[in-house]
Design a protein around this nucleic acid. Structure first.
Length: 492
RNA sequence: CGGGGUGUGGCGCAGUUGGUAGCGUACCUGGUUUGGGACCAGGUGGUCCCGCGUUCGAGUCGCGGUACCCCGACCA
């Protein structure tokens, strides 16, 4: 089984076709590199949004919304930032179409050329900081803690559904603080929110760490990341939180008067996760039968499939299901009774497995006579017939157990593929097999780049909460002194 | 932007030396079925990516275009 799973995840397009298309999450759009997220896929995203939003609000963050269009001039103020994004921006140059004078449909009206081009946001730092400038005058105005849920556009050379689409949905938080310490603490706090979400909601084990300077967000002084391992052993950056220092405050002249009456630049953070998390979910947990959704994110947690020959059996089973459904819903469990009478039970079983529904209940004439129900769990595909009596107590506990089971399985898989490595020869071989290798690094961008050139492996992070290994050693490539091990992997 | 590949019913594909398009699946109708993706019978559905050319005749050959996919480069 594990082998087949790996072979699927090995080939990106294969998992996409097997899991995403068949499970009805998304399809190719007519627009290059874009994606249509279908209702079932979007329902999963909505669950993610709802849970994350609640977590943000508990940290004092409020939602806001900023414009899609950013004047080009805003973009050129922060030099590193523009260098990082300039190559992948969609730009609006005109505001009107007209009928083609030659009769060939519609053309862009040359008279409608914009005075200043508008960039479709690839991220909103620049427009948000231009707004924050007007919100901040006193130390009493700080901190500003805003988040927005929106879409962004990055004209990537190569796109992959969910992992790197030209347009994607995300949230981006942007905070302004009076002190560096407070801003740094916020960046750390938010990466931990992401890690909690990944671990406890997505059942996705992640490593928290700092990005190396090479891998940092354009314009950041420090980038914190959560890194997850997919079933082929490749790494996926699942969320990031940046300490931006005063770079944006200085570029956009955002100053406040402190308690001593002095003008000070504010300190900033930004942090985000995107629909890429959907890709992580699919690739981390999916198996040969389709998606495996952690109960916390499943739009439908329990599906009930009635099995019957005659109408009397059908109505009797449905009646029992209705009662259980009401009892479960009272406990906050989402339930669907699949009463479609044109499909056979076996077809329904396969279909709901493809969609990753955590628990399936089946009931037929045998069960009616015996007062039982068949309970099947998606994560390990096991089935058990048990008394219908008390099932509404059993299911919530079962869902918890599945949530944990999915995490434990993913964690065991990852842990089996994380190892220390001190030999360059061994590194080159093992990194290609899909491993997270804990290696000594001399801290230089040159070494990092050479390793990337030779193996495609990058430093995923310098870990801070798990796999931390601060010990003296020598760089695996250069042989120069190192103060600790970092995580190397090949990434998506 | 380089290298490779593919465009044929909704989806997945076959199509020989050029002879006027077929299979699986899906869909529709009827019947029998229903505890792991049912079966039988009948049926609907295609300007073969576009254009030009060669030819008595092009899905097939030639030229040009175009779209998509894969591998790179690129990429919180």
């Amino acid at each position: 089984m594990a082998k087949e799973v790996t072979s699927r995840a090995d080939n990106y397009s294969q998992w996409y076709n097997d899991l995403v298309v068949k499970a009805d999450l998304a399809e190719q759009s007519a627009v290059r590199g874009c994606m249509v997220i279908k209702p079932y896929g979007y329902a999963i995203w909505e669950k993610m949004q709802g849970i994350l939003d609640g977590m943000f609000k508990r940290t004092g963050v409020q939602n806001a919304y900023f414009p899609l269009f950013i004047p080009k001039s805003f973009f050129s103020r922060e030099a590193e930032h523009v260098a990082g994004f300039a190559k992948e921006c969609a730009v609006v140059t005109h505001h009107r179409l007209m009928n083609d004078p030659d009769g060939n449909g519609v053309v862009v009206d040359p008279d409608a050329k914009l005075e200043e081009e508008l960039v479709v946001r690839p991220t909103s730092e620049t427009i948000i900081w231009s707004v924050y400038k007007n919100w901040v005058t006193s130390w009493r105005d700080l901190p500003i803690l805003c988040n927005q849920w929106c879409n962004v556009v990055r004209w990537e050379m190569r796109t992959r559904p969910f992992l790197r689409t030209a347009e994607f949905l995300w949230q981006e938080g942007h905070t302004a603080h009076a002190t560096a310490e407070e801003a740094q603490a916020k960046a750390v706090e938010m990466v931990h929110v992401y890690a909690d979400f990944a671990r406890n909601v997505m059942a996705l084990p992640v490593i928290i760490g700092h990005k190396s300077p090479n891998e940092r967000f354009a314009g950041a002084l420090d980038t914190l990341t959560i890194e997850a391992m997919m079933q082929d052993g490749k790494a996926l950056q699942a969320g990031t939180s940046h300490f931006l220092g005063q770079n944006f405050a200085k570029s956009f002249d955002v100053q406040y008067t402190d308690k001593e009456g002095q003008q000070q630049y504010v300190w900033a953070t930004s942090w985000g996760v995107s629909t890429r998390l959907m890709g992580a979910l699919i690739m981390a947990h999916g198996d040969d039968n389709g998606l495996v959704l952690p109960p916390a994110l499943a739009p439908i947690q329990v599906v009930m499939v009635p099995i019957y020959r005659a109408e009397e059996e059908r109505s009797a089973v449905i009646a029992k299901f209705e009662a259980v459904k009401a009892a479960l819903e009272a406990k906050g469990v989402s339930v669907k009774i699949d009463d479609r009478d044109t499909l056979r039970p076996g077809f329904k079983f396969a279909e709901w497995e493809l969609k990753g529904v955590p628990v399936r209940l089946a009931m037929g004439a045998r069960d009616l006579a015996a007062g039982t129900v068949e309970v099947a769990r998606r994560d390990d595909l096991s089935k058990e017939t048990m008394p219908l009596e008390g099932i509404e107590e059993h299911i919530p506990a079962l869902l918890d157990s599945i949530q944990k089971g999915i995490y434990d399985k993913a964690a065991a898989f990852r842990d089996s593929r994380v190892e220390k490595c001190d030999s360059w020869e061994e590194f080159k071989e093992k990194i290609q097999q899909g491993r997270f290798l804990l290696c000594h690094w001399d801290g230089t961008a040159e070494t990092e780049q050479k390793i990337k050139d030779e193996t495609k492996a990058t430093i995923r992070c310098i870990p801070v909460d798990s796999y931390v290994c601060e010990e003296e050693g020598v760089d695996i490539y250069s042989g120069k002194p190192s103060k600790g091990r970092v995580v190397f992997a090949i990434s998506y």
